[in-house]
Computed example of a mutant assay.
Amino acid sequence: MRRAILLSSLTLCLTANIFAAKPGKPSITKTIYGEINGQHIYQYTLTNSSGMQVKVINYGATITDILAPDRDNKLGDVVLGFDSLKQYLGRNNALLGAAVGRVANRIAKGRFTLDGKEYLLPSNIHSGPRGFDKQVWAIEEVPGSKEVALKLTYLSKDGENGFPGNLITTITYTLTNNNELKLSYRATTDKATPVVITNHTYFNLSGTTDKVNNTQLTILANKYLEADKDVMPSGKLLDVKGTPYDFTQPKEIGKDIAATGNGYDLSYALNNASGKLALAATAYEPLSGRVLQTYTTEPCLIVYTGNHFNERIIGRGGQHFNKWGALCLETMHFPDSPNQPGFPNVILRPGEIFKSETVYKFSVRK
């Protein structure tokens, strides 16, 4: 324990002394990160004109790092991650920063019926053990003067994880000069299939792995999805008013977290259901001054607080993880939608194009 604390302190000291780079031209760099079954894994670094950075590997279309400035213009890594590909391949990697699909979150009993045919899946969560997060994606660099981007593409073949249709998915990660990280999703299929795609980044705006209890969160949602102990939706929407799940006004995450039992793991039905890009949530970390605004075209926001983390999990720079040490803000359609006719449609058919956009915008309060 003492060694872990010392390592964590050293890492924090090093991080605190990293200042934002001087303004310059946006850039993309690439380094070798490892190898899987003869396939090279690379880490790409997007850097904008003010020095903010986003790092991505082509394994799992994973965001490994987001370096954003605090109120003193010092860069800090505001997402949880690991130091090596070996760790991302290990059992302690709970989808950190990864793309999740072809159907993210839950499907009751690992089965659904589509056009009169029943499909059986290897798991009831995150599409099973070989989902998007375990695949090697093709990457194309997209340079620019106002923004830089990475275009990642993966073909999920007919029958993969039990799903019908050859699904071609493209995810574009764009870093703008306004400190926005844009996630743009596009997919097409040759057979009808459910599609629910998200990203599973674990944010900690303090730049550490400490508990996120003092982070102030606001969610533009008056209702949440009723669910059982396994977080499987019943199909009903409940009011947040008068519950520990009410973030309609800014509230510290830690204020009511004990009343939830194990922590937040909840699906919010966002007030905006137009399909147009709109603000969904705002998180503010008072010690660093960092602000994260989440915009999305999706109707649902999953809020998760790293309830399964513990000190035995060692992350980047030797820092151990902590229960309630992260905040996931996953934008997507409702969980178990293929089995819930009252939920918004998630079936993609031939000739149609699945499109979705989420923006994580970083700023500071002085």
Rank of each mutant, 00 (worst) to 15 (best):
A273S: 13
Y264P: 04
L277I: 15
I253Q: 02
Y284K: 00
K236Q: 12
F247H: 08
G275Q: 14
A273D: 10
P233Q: 00
K241S: 10
K236T: 15
F247Y: 15
N272P: 01
A259P: 01
K255N: 12
S274G: 10
G275I: 14
G254E: 10
D265W: 13
M232G: 03
P250L: 01
D230P: 00
L237D: 00
P250V: 08
K236F: 13
G242R: 05
A283G: 08
Y264S: 04
N272A: 08
K241Q: 10
G261R: 00
V231D: 05
L279P: 00
D239M: 09
I257V: 14
N271K: 12
D246E: 03
G254D: 11
V240H: 03
F247E: 14
G235N: 10
G235Y: 04
E252H: 01
P250D: 05
E252R: 02
K229I: 15
N262A: 12
D265P: 09
T282G: 01
G235S: 09
T248Q: 05
G254V: 09
G275P: 13
L279A: 02
A281N: 03
T248A: 03
S234V: 13
L270F: 10
K229M: 14
G263Q: 11
T243L: 11
T243G: 08
K251T: 11
I257F: 04
D256Q: 05
D265A: 09
K251S: 05
Y264V: 02
A273P: 02
L270Q: 09
Q249K: 11
S234A: 11
T260L: 06
T260V: 15
V231L: 02
I253S: 01
I253P: 02
D239W: 03
N262G: 07
E252L: 09
T243P: 06
A283D: 06
L238K: 04
